Simulated scan of single mutants.
Amino acid sequence: MIIKGMTANCTVSMHFWNNIPKNISKLTFTDSNIDQEVLGDLGLHLMTNECLINELTLDGIDLSKKNFMCCLPPVTRVKKLWLRFCRLGDAGVDRISETLQCQGDDFCDKGETRTLQLLNLDCNGITCAGVKTLAQVLRANRTLRILSLAKNAIKDEGALALVNVLSKFALTEDELRWKNTRELRRTRILEWTY
């Protein structure tokens, strides 16, 4: 379902969300002037059991001063998120990084099942500082498979931060502790099942 050029005067009510066909798996808002209320309602809709949306596109929407992460609630089926031309900058990347960091088994609160696999952040004015933040999060994130950062203000320093995290790297003490705890839990589960 594609919604293009929606203006601020156009209200998307809960009636709209309740009448979305149950088999919709992709929702696209392009070049729309949506407000925080619409984003909040979208987040509520994404948390319902009936919602099958696994691809969400919010392209060309100025999200620089909005809480756009409410569109990726803790329990959601969204696996692909496009946020191109949204004026996110490094501040937006910081908000996204908090969510990405919370995608490992032991990093999230109980009940959270975030499974974001694709994130497109093209043309958002992201600098090396934002990429360094993403790089640190990618050390622990095991679900994100595709990250697009085309046409941002990323220099060699930011690219190098990504390269370093995507190649083999030594684990920190906290990461080693987390890994050992996880392996110990697996061993206990295996012993219990035998």
Rank of each mutant, 00 (worst) to 15 (best):
I146G: 07
R84K: 14
L134Q: 06
A140C: 12
A150C: 05
R84L: 09
T76V: 13
L88N: 04
L160N: 10
P74H: 04
G89T: 01
K65P: 00
L144H: 07
G92P: 04
K66M: 15
R145Q: 15
Q103R: 08
L118E: 14
L144Y: 10
T127Q: 02
S148E: 12
L63V: 12
P74G: 03
T113H: 06
K80W: 06
L118R: 10
G125C: 06
M69L: 14
L72I: 15
L134P: 08
T133M: 07
R77S: 10
E98T: 04
V131C: 06
R77D: 02
A91E: 13
V75A: 11
L63C: 11
L119Y: 02
R139C: 05
A135P: 06
E112L: 08
L83R: 05
V131G: 06
R95S: 10
C71Q: 09
R95E: 09
L116F: 07
F107M: 13
I154M: 05
S97F: 05
V75N: 13
Q101E: 14
A153P: 00
C128Q: 08
K151T: 09
G111M: 02
A129F: 08
E112T: 10
T127P: 02
D90K: 12
D90C: 10
L119Q: 09
N67H: 13
L81C: 11
T99G: 00
C70H: 03
C108S: 14
F107K: 14
R87N: 15
R95G: 00
A129Y: 09
K151F: 09
K151H: 12
V78E: 04
N124C: 00
N124F: 03
E98F: 04
L138E: 02
I146P: 00
L160D: 14
I126C: 02
N67V: 12
D90W: 08
T143A: 03
A153E: 09
